[in-house]
Amino acid sequence: MEHHTHAPTGPALTRLAVSATLHCLTGCAIGEVLGMVLGTAFGWSNGTTIVVAVLLAFLFGYALTIRPVLRSGLPLRAAIGVALAADTVSIAVMELVDNAVMLLIPGAMGAGLGNWVFWAALAGSLAVAFVVTVPVNRWLIARGKGHAVVHQHHH
């Protein structure tokens, strides 16, 4: 079902995309930081660390969307559907970019938790992911997809 009810345009659309991306960044950052910290602390391989970080990013990203949608009165199954529709592309893009940047920064994945390189690389990778994901969210919202789906359930 498509919804074409007064979709924002221009600066309003960009502001909404930035807001949606900040929302996505929050969940991704919680999961990503937790996954990277666990992987680094336990000495996991880069692959295992990234898998855990991505899974946690999706978990926290979806949870941050499901909670307010449940408060709007939707049952859990429907709220999960809204979260999947609203956040999957955004989280996937953010995680792809974030982890690619982490892998490209020499020594970032191998730096210990007490090493500034680890934290600077992680912060920088999340910042790059944010910048790349804003236009993706803008494109989705303009078409009534992505985070626009959540706004249909806000009261």
Rank of each mutant, 00 (worst) to 15 (best):
H4A: 06
L64I: 08
T14P: 00
R71L: 10
T88S: 10
S72C: 00
G31L: 06
V136S: 03
A142R: 08
V101Q: 11
D98A: 15
I66S: 02
R67F: 14
V134A: 00
A123N: 06
G39C: 11
G10R: 09
W119A: 01
T40R: 14
V69P: 08
T14L: 13
N137T: 11
G61C: 00
W119P: 06
P75R: 01
G112E: 12
L22I: 11
P75N: 10
V131T: 02
V52L: 15
E2N: 04
V51W: 14
G47C: 06
L122T: 07
A63R: 12
Q152D: 11
V52F: 13
H147F: 06
V18K: 00
S19K: 10
P75V: 04
D98W: 09
N46M: 07
A17Y: 01
G31F: 04
L104N: 10
L64A: 09
T65D: 08
A78M: 07
G144Q: 08
I50R: 13
S125A: 15
F42R: 14
A121C: 04
G27I: 06
Y62N: 07
M102F: 13
A86K: 02
G61H: 05
V93T: 15
G61D: 03
M102H: 10
F60N: 06
V132I: 15
L25A: 14
V18F: 01
